[in-house]
Nucleic acid binder design. Structure first.
Length: 268
DNA sequence: ATGACTAAACCTTTTAGA
């Protein structure tokens, strides 16, 4: 018995809705976190997802950002953005799911981390401040929720293994020491990079530039991550990147990352 | 290479993404 959770930056839900529905049909999951909806709340296709068998909680905004949680069970205690961190952008949505039989309920945070644009820019400073705000909040969330998942588009690589051209990207956005330090500081709260808990193919990425045949040449980066708490690490069975949707017509530049957890109902 | 693609909006041009 197992459950699956996934994250996918769809780069416009309006454009990608048919692809999301197709993917869910082929890949049923208990929770799917979406980023970059790029639509306002009134445009969110909740009824369409309902028809497909998924509950939804969403947090949109015009043109940019926007996040959602699709789920087989309804989310409880939904929170939008980071309590204690003032932000006029819709980047975070969290909910609690009564998954796992007798296990504690699962707190799932879906997040679209700031891009940062360029080291030294105002947007980079915002990214660092946002990361600090997130960390302070996740610390308290972990104290209250032993089973916690933090997944989404991090816009940060862990190390050179996550980058197709480490030399060319040295100290560039997504690859700076400051960003990677912040990512390690998240791990230091007691979180684990689910993807690296398992053997993975070399040159595995979750994003490829639209330009210059980036996907075809596998010129990408691994910037979409699923971080899990200690309690969930013990139940993790597999984690993979599903490149299939990146081969679609009009694809998102990101592709889904999936986590499989064992549901140990016998220990309830 | 101040490039390339894609998406959205103040839409034939700009902003942002990563």
């Amino acid at each position: 018995m197992s459950i699956k959770l996934a994250t996918w930056n769809v780069n416009s839900l309006t454009v990608r809705l048919p692809q999301v529905l197709d993917w869910l049909q082929a890949n049923p999951v208990e929770v799917l976190a979406l980023q970059e909806l790029k639509l306002t709340d009134d445009k969110f296709p909740a009824a369409v997802f309902q028809q497909a068998g998924y509950q939804a909680a969403w947090f949109g905004q015009k043109t940019y950002n926007g996040v959602a949680l699709l789920s087989s069970l309804p989310a409880q205690d939904v929170v939008r953005n980071i309590p204690g961190f003032d932000d006029d952008m819709a980047r975070v949505i969290s909910g609690t799911f009564a998954l796992g039989g007798g296990e504690s309920p699962m707190r799932v945070i879906g997040a679209y981390f700031p891009n940062g644009q360029e080291p030294g820019s105002d947007k980079f400073e915002y990214k660092l401040a946002w990361l600090k705000g997130l960390r302070d909040w996740v610390r308290t969330e972990l104290q209250q929720n032993p089973s916690l998942v933090l997944m989404g588009d991090y816009n940060i690589t862990f190390d050179d293994a996550d980058v197709w051209d480490p030399e060319g990207m040295r100290d560039q956005i997504h690859c700076t020491d400051e960003e990677r330090y912040q990512l390690q500081a998240l791990l230091a709260l007691g979180l684990h990079d689910a993807y690296r808990l398992f053997a993975q193919p070399p040159k595995s990425y979750s994003w490829w530039d639209y330009r210059d045949f980036g996907f075809k040449r596998n010129r990408g980066m691994r910037i979409d991550h699923i971080l899990i708490s200690q309690a969930l690490k013990a139940r993790a069975r597999a984690c993979w990147i599903d490149k299939t949707p990146r081969k679609n017509e009009r694809p998102s530049d990101h592709t889904p990352v999936v986590l499989e957890l064992e549901m140990d109902s016998e220990h309830s």
